[in-house]
């Protein structure tokens, strides 16, 4: 019995201490990690989507908490007005979470483009979602009220051959982004005005 108690105590204490240390490290590195992600992952996607913006979308960002998640929104100015906005959503890919940066034109309520940020898909198959524009370019110009699905599921997005799960993950992420956009559009419009100087 005594040994039993000792085992439970040691394991519990060890696990709690480990949890505490990890929470501290997580907190300590969070800011630095965010900066690195902006530079290496989100940055290239944002610059591609909001190419030609007169401002720097990575600097002109704000955060909104909707539901339980806090999202970063990146503002792009075109023709002197802040009229495009981009943010990241995730879908369930073949190798884990797949991130898609989705840009919206806030005046016409249309998708301005999509680009894959992070993924762990198979090189040569699913990874083409990021390497090649064939899949993501299909989203450009669609109205936000549209439903996006791969053709296999009755939609009109042509999936990457051999990578249906990856393609679904992308459509899933875009759909989520479209829903979020429609849900919080008033808030977005309000925030975006602050960049209109």
């Amino acid at each position: 019995m005594n040994e039993m108690v000792k085992m439970v105590v040691v394991l519990t204490v060890l696990a709690s201490v480990a949890g505490g240390v990890l929470a501290a490290v997580n907190q300590g590195t969070a800011i630095q990690i965010e900066a690195q992600q902006l530079q290496f992952v989100k940055g290239p996607a944002i610059n591609k989507l909001l190419e030609g913006a007169s401002n720097n979308p990575i600097d002109d960002r704000f955060k909104i908490t909707a539901g339980e998640t806090e999202r970063s929104f990146f503002v792009g100015k075109f023709d002197g007005k802040p009229n495009k906005i981009a943010f990241e959503e995730f879908g369930k890919g073949y190798g884990g979470d797949l991130g898609v940066m989705v840009a919206f034109d806030i005046e016409s309520d249309k998708l301005a483009g999509a680009a894959v940020t992070v993924h762990s898909e198979t090189p040569g198959l699913g990874a083409n979602a990021k390497e090649k524009p064939d899949l993501v370019s299909q989203f450009e110009g669609l109205p936000v009220t549209d439903s996006v699905n791969v053709t296999k599921d009755g939609g009109r997005i042509n999936a990457i051959s051999g990578a249906t799960i990856t393609s679904r993950a992308v459509t899933q992420a875009v759909t989520k982004a479209m829903n979020v956009y429609q849900d919080i559009k008033p808030q977005l419009q309000q925030e975006i005005q602050k960049f209109g100087k």
Binding site: M7, V10, L14, A18, V21, V25, T29, Q32, I33, Q39
Partner: peptide, 30 residues
């Protein structure tokens, strides 16, 4: 560490260090 749960304890310790490495690498060698 009691003999009978030593593997579980090792795994906790190892997994913690791996998570620390992963976070540090994300922060400084993205």
């Amino acid at each position: 560490i009691p003999q009978k749960v030593r593997i579980a304890c090792f795994i906790i310790i190892i997994a913690s260090f791996v998570t620390i490495v992963e976070l540090l690498m994300q922060a400084y060698a993205y």
